[in-house]
Every structure is written in C-alpha cells, then in structure tokens.
C-alpha cells in the first residue's frame, strides 16, 4: 500500500494534463486533489450558472469530479484541455438536472424574464471579469436568432425542437443557427 502523509511533504505538481490524468487513473489521490484545486471553481461555476441552486450545483460538482476519478483513463488531451473537458461534463450534467426537475414552463418563464443580451450566472469576480467581458462582447456580435438559439439551449436547457416550436421556426433553421452561431463565437473569441 502506498504510504501517505508525513513521508510526502511536497505534493507533486503535474504540469501536463496527460501526466495528471495518468496519475489519477493509477489511483493517486494527491493528483486527484490537484485536479480539484485547479478546476473546482470552474466546474462549480458552470453548474451554478445553469442550476442557480447552490445545493444542486454542489451535487453536480461532486458527480463531475467522481466521474473524472473513475474515467481518468478515458481522457484524451487531443479532445481539448482539462478545463474544457470538465466544464462541459458539468454543463451537460446540469442540463440533465434542469430537464428532470424543472418543468418546461418554468424554464420558459425564466428565459422570458431575461433580457435578450443578459447572460445568467453568478457575479463575475475580478479575476475573470475581463475574460467574461470578451464572451459577452462576442455573444453580442451574434445575430438575434443565433443568440437566442444558443442561449435558450445552453443556459435554459431547451432541446432544439423545443426552441424551434417556441420561436416558430423550422428545425433546420435552429440547427443551422446554433452551428454558425458557435462558429462566429469561436472566431470572435480567437480574435479577442
């Protein structure tokens, strides 16, 4: 059994995502702690933004990290950085929770209360304020149809057929606006 505690006073630092995930896949709890310390705020923030319920966001955060613990061997760095990987797992889980606990009508009301260009979420802290300003700026560069298709799906958990029905547009339009909206967002963020 590996000895823990006193004999290891300096925690290992895994600079590369692959190294960190390989250590976690081998059952290294210190490496897992490092993963948590680096990304817990990002994961929790992503869940809270969709759920707006601290208890549920905490649950999702726990599920995401335990999924990373069990699935560390499946991580492939070419599919994107660790932050992207974890944040998208958190988002998807949060959307699953919203769909199962919050009726579609409640989500419609909440979406309707939001101003078109308002993006929900906890108040940005100072560190990320600049980065978030870029995201907001780039969202504002989308066409109204792109913006609404993207935000109704991503922040309110609607499926694309629900959005098409809500907006009275063909399914193909919504699918296309989501895809070209994301492409425009990517281009804008790359310039920023």
């Amino acid at each position: 059994m590996p000895r823990r505690g006193l004999l290891r006073s300096v925690p290992p630092v895994h600079a590369q995502p692959q190294q960190l995930m390989a250590a976690i896949a081998a059952g290294d709890l210190d490496a897992f702690g490092e993963l948590y310390d680096r990304f817990a705020s990002a994961v929790h923030g992503a869940a809270l933004q969709v759920l707006r319920d601290p208890a549920r966001a905490e649950e999702v955060t726990q599920e995401v990290f335990l999924e990373a613990w069990r699935g560390a061997a499946q991580y492939r760095s070419e599919r994107g950085g660790l932050r992207t990987w974890l944040v998208l797992i958190a988002h998807r889980r949060a959307i699953d929770v919203v769909r199962s606990v919050e009726a579609s009508r409640a989500r419609e009301e909440r979406a309707a209360r939001r101003e078109l260009h308002e993006v929900p979420g906890p108040e940005a802290d100072l560190v990320t304020a600049a980065e978030w300003a870029d995201v907001r700026h780039c969202l504002e560069g989308l066409t109204p149809l792109q913006l609404e298709s993207v935000t109704l799906a991503y922040y309110d958990g609607f499926t694309y057929p629900e959005i098409a029905a809500h907006m009275g547009r063909p399914l193909s339009t919504i699918k296309t606006r989501m895809r070209d909206g994301l492409a425009r967002l990517r281009d804008c963020l790359e310039e920023a």
Partner: peptide
C-alpha cells in the same frame, strides 16, 4: 468549437470549503 462552448460557462465560482474533503474521501 468545444472551447468556445466551454467559454459560455466561464464564470468560476468557488464551491463550499467542505466539498473538497467530501469528494476526496468518496474517491
């Protein structure tokens, strides 16, 4: 496109302090 999608979630918010220990002991 994935990084752009993840950027839509980029609002870090620290979880409650006790969560770290809870998750690590579950692991």
């Amino acid at each position: 496109l994935r990084p752009a999608v993840a950027a839509l979630s980029d609002r870090p918010s620290p979880p409650p302090a006790g969560l770290r220990e809870q998750i690590i002991s579950r692991a």
